[in-house]
Design a protein around this nucleic acid. Structure first.
Lengths: 137, 137
DNA sequence: TATACGACCTCTAGTCACTATAGCTTCAAG
DNA sequence: CTTGAAGCTATAGTGACTAGAGGTCGTATA
């Protein structure tokens, strides 16, 4: 049996975050001490480690909830898990693509400002007038 | 003089968003009609277009506020504007780097799941056990 | 001039995934 | 038995909006 602090140390998830996960029904303590403090078991650690790992990979909590449901039953078809992961990958790639467009435009804007006064500043002029941009965003 | 809807149409910023920007002091209407409806002028359009453009490039509203302050006075040194833009660029690049690490790991996890049941699912096993991962995240 | 209808108004609450604070109680070591 | 760390609940705040309720205004037409 582990206290919430122990669980936190073993998984790297902060104590308030663990309580938050419990409040939204993502995890459950296996009971309480006489003085109303949460107690967790080995399963609690595994489940929280799973969540942490999935969060680190960028999965939203809703997706993690679905993945946890799937892994609770080893007989479930896992096509759904594959789909969720594929979706997350596609989402991540889309974000990268968007950010790369922004970075390119920012670089064009942010480098080589001729003026040293705001009046002629590249950055400010580019932001004020969309026509200074190369691509759409 | 433009109504809020007209301003919205001319800048592509949604009406509730315009009201939100006003509520946080990012823009101001130049007055109200007899019936208490907002009225904007040409300057309002320019300022909102500036904001929209900066948001499209990923600048947070706080940075945009600072950029607007700078562009309000053409005599201000523009080193600060350059700094803000450079910071935004650095931030964007950092995000890209992180997302690329995640995408690589997701791809490794999400492709080629051998099993068709959750019990042997690649995705679920990788999430359950960090040791299945190639790199840190 | 009456009326219809779209556009406008304010205010509140919800989104996501936490984080912070306040004020209190419990646990474990000495 | 005392002390101090760790635990508890509840509430509010973050960023940048978005959605909804319930009411008012402006203007074109009949």
């Amino acid at each position: 049996m582990y206290s919430i602090g122990e669980l936190s140390r073993r998984t790297g998830v902060k104590v308030p975050t663990i309580r938050y996960y419990e409040s939204i029904g993502l995890i459950a303590s296996c009971g309480r001490s006489a003085g109303n403090q949460r107690r967790f078991d080995r399963q609690g650690i595994d489940r929280l480690a799973f969540i942490r790992h999935a969060r680190a990979l960028g999965f939203p909590l809703d997706a993690i909830r679905a993945l946890l449901d799937l892994s609770d039953d080893p007989e479930t078809p896992c096509a759904e898990a594959d789909r969720i992961a594929a979706e997350q990958l596609a989402d991540t790639r889309a974000r990268i693509a968007r950010l790369e467009r922004l970075a390119a435009e920012l670089e064009r804007i942010a480098t080589g400002c001729a003026s040293d006064r705001a009046g002629g500043c590249n950055v400010l002029q580019a932001l004020a007038d969309h026509r200074h941009c190369a691509g759409p965003h």
